[in-house]
Design a protein around this nucleic acid. Sequence first.
DNA 1: GTCTATATTCCGATAGAC
DNA 2: GTCTATCGGAATATAGAC
Lengths: 223, 223
Amino acid sequence: MGESAKAVETSTRILDAAELLFVEHGFDATSMRLITQAAGVNIAAVNYYFGSKDGLFKAVFERRAEPFARLFLGHLDQLERQYANPSAKQVVEAFVAAAIELGQEASLGGLIFVRLLARTFVEPHPVLKESMPRRYSELTRRYISALVKSLPHLSEAEVHWRFHFLANAMFNAFAGTNVLRLFMAHPIVNARDPQMVARMLVPFVVAGLDAQAAMPELVDQNS
Amino acid sequence: MGESAKAVETSTRILDAAELLFVEHGFDATSMRLITQAAGVNIAAVNYYFGSKDGLFKAVFERRAEPFARLFLGHLDQLERQYANPSAKQVVEAFVAAAIELGQEASLGGLIFVRLLARTFVEPHPVLKESMPRRYSELTRRYISALVKSLPHLSEAEVHWRFHFLANAMFNAFAGTNVLRLFMAHPIVNARDPQMVARMLVPFVVAGLDAQAAMPELVDQNS
DNA sequence: GTCTATATTCCGATAGAC
DNA sequence: GTCTATCGGAATATAGAC
């Protein structure tokens, strides 16, 4: 390692700073000047390493996308090896565990990528609208497939709806956006504590998944 | 009515166009040039009527904030007159009904304000961080209070957590952001149909509210 | 690889004629 | 009230020296 010196690579410092700022203030509101200043690098470095601001966003996303998918699918594999018919609760817990482990793996304090993912739902960046389905279609397919098997009292369409609600609730919960803070001066909950969030969230969403069907009469009418 | 002619007032046309564009692309990504062009008015009209872009956002928000609060509190009043102890399901349905009625009152197609509210949670606009608690604190207090009474098996702190999850799930559901579309090429659910969303959503969140406590041992340890 | 300096574009806001 | 023209600033991106 002849050229030691630098503690952290320049490109990594940029990724770290950008990840945090994108989550905190959004993509548009985060200027490259702010990013490079926070990272302690020159303004031109972003273009040198990532080509453009869009390229930087894609790189920020891609860095965590693969490890997260690998963690979750690993949990799901193990679950399906151990049990013939995993419950909805076990499937949800596999997902939550992956999110928390990712937050602990990354040297950063929180579940920053999960928060970034949550923001991406509400304001999808054009760069990702193309690459996300390709990368996550298998994960989504296996997640929903496991839920379908664990919820035999629901039609497949209704499981899709519940997965839709589940994903919204979970990602927003881990995003740490405290809804209550907007409505009351002194909210009780601490939305930033991921362990607490996970503990409170799992019973809520699992009960929602297990609930009776809202659409039992799916195909018995031909209006 | 001496000066007839104009079908819709200029300021109203601006509000309509801005409301839609803010929801679709966010505040920062929506330029005043885009708004005035969509509204078919002059660029300077925004500053003339609303003073600034921030003033316009505030006006967009304020136009729907009061009617929505009035609708929901009306439903809650009626509910508490009719029943001694309204169930969590009834409280949730009062909220959903208010959202849908607001969407039908406004001549626009969808539940645009509810979608705007959902976006506001994820990227809170500075202008609202001050005015929102003042306007909605009573609504939130009464909503949570009704839930606390309807869920006697939960501690007040846990009800606050569930309200946090509930609000996230509901607003995002009505926001019409199709999470599944980001993950799969051809999702089944149509997240833009508010009637369908309401029908699928209510059983999910009500079951989540009714679920057993995750924090039964709240105060029995003094670590 | 890293820096300075700059090109280019777009933004919100305003002045002033009509 | 409505318009044109423009100001001042900030953004991304790049050219070119070192």
